[in-house]
């Protein structure tokens, strides 16, 4: 018969398990407290608010689902979500542009680092400065108009870039592309550079041209990060906020996106309940979009996940095939 020793707390604490427990609790207390206080508690509160008619201070009244119904009924709330289509189109342009420039820069070019730096720098500018820069840039007869005149456009034929409601959302999306394309480009270059250089050399020796190198070596290796960026920019488009907020001083002239509208409802009209319902609805949409995209990603690009393991093999196979083809042609 074995005698079980009574549990000795002090001994346990001094032992390995106890030491681990102490360090776990000690190191996690602050981050967890911050996460719960500033992310999950407000999240829960917001969920609760969405069922009330309330302002920041004063009486609250429980009104059930009325806020949610209002979001769909009012023509200024849900309608604003249509503007994100502009931002999605912008995101596609932005990624294509980033991919193209990254492909150029990943080959040896003179002054590559300088060009990369120029195109990346806008990403580091603070939002309010961007607001002023583009208010100035788009003002009638100022920077943009002047440059277009250099290229032979007549000022009379140019629209008011920020006032004209048929073009102003495009102008705003352009600023967002301007800010972020360099960032996407840097990410793509990073992925492209992770490809073994020998592959390119081998391909070059075998007479593969630049386009073939791009298509068979580069593209497969960056598919994952391109998809990832596409997903993130679609989610980002739904919550577009900065361009109309800073350039149009809060979304004048029909440029108010969903988030800008929500900010206005929450802070100017102080309809906290309605704004909360808007936030929850958008979260549900973003969540659904993310899940759908993940599923899409999984089934359409089945091999996307195990990229690192198999990509090299596939690339080599394709390369071999390509080599054989070139040889046949002589």
């Amino acid at each position: 018969m074995t005698r079980t020793t009574p549990f000795n707390l002090r001994k346990w604490l001094r032992g390995r398990k106890g030491q681990q427990a102490i360090i776990i609790v000690l190191f996690m207390a602050v981050p967890l407290a911050l996460l719960l206080t500033f992310t999950y508690f407000p999240f829960a509160e917001m969920f609760k608010f969405s069922f009330y008619k309330m302002k920041y201070v004063g009486e609250r009244e429980f009104i059930g689902l009325k806020n949610y119904i209002d979001v769909f009924k009012r023509d200024d709330c849900f309608q604003a979500l249509w503007l994100s289509v502009y931002y999605m189109c912008g995101a596609v342009v932005q990624l294509a542009l980033a991919l193209y420039l990254a492909a150029i820069l990943s080959f040896k070019v003179k002054g590559g680092n300088f060009f990369k730096g120029c195109m990346f720098f806008p990403y580091l500018i603070n939002g309010i400065a961007i607001g002023f820069i583009f208010k100035f840039f788009y003002t009638r007869g100022f920077v943009f108009d002047t440059v277009l005149q250099w290229f032979g456009f007549e000022l009379e034929n140019l629209p008011y870039w920020l006032k004209d409601t048929s073009i102003n959302n495009v102008s705003l999306v352009a600023t967002s592309v301007w800010k972020y394309f360099g960032n996407n480009m840097v990410l793509f270059i990073g992925a492209m550079m992770s490809v073994d250089n020998e592959l390119y050399e081998a391909a070059m020796l075998d007479g593969a041209n630049k386009w073939q190198q791009f298509k068979y070596i580069m593209l497969p290796s960056i598919k994952t990060i391109v998809m990832l960026n596409l997903i993130m920019s679609i989610t980002g488009s739904l919550s577009a906020f900065e361009p109309p907020f800073v350039i149009m001083s809060g979304g004048a002239n029909g440029t108010a996106t969903y988030f800008v509208k929500m900010h206005e409802i929450a802070h100017t009209s102080q309809k906290v309940g309605l704004a909360s319902a808007m936030a929850i609805i958008l979260l549900l949409i973003i969540f659904a979009a993310t899940v759908l995209q993940k599923l899409f990603f999984k089934y359409v690009f089945k091999d996307g996940e195990d990229e690192d393991v198999n990509a090299a093999k596939r690339r080599e196979k394709k390369l071999a095939r390509e080599k054989a083809r070139l040889k046949r042609r002589g």
């Binding site: 206080t37 500033f38 992310t39 508690f41 407000p42 999240f43 509160e45 917001m46 608010f49 920041y56 919550s239 906020f241 988030f259 929500m262 900010h263 929450a266 906290v272 704004a275 909360s276 808007m278 936030a279 958008l282 979260l283 973003i286």
Partner: peptide, 13 residues
């Protein structure tokens, strides 16, 4: 969770 969306309740907190 987009930070701006949560400001309604974060502000209260």
């Amino acid at each position: 969770l987009p930070g701006i969306a949560m400001q309604v309740s974060t502000y209260q907190l």
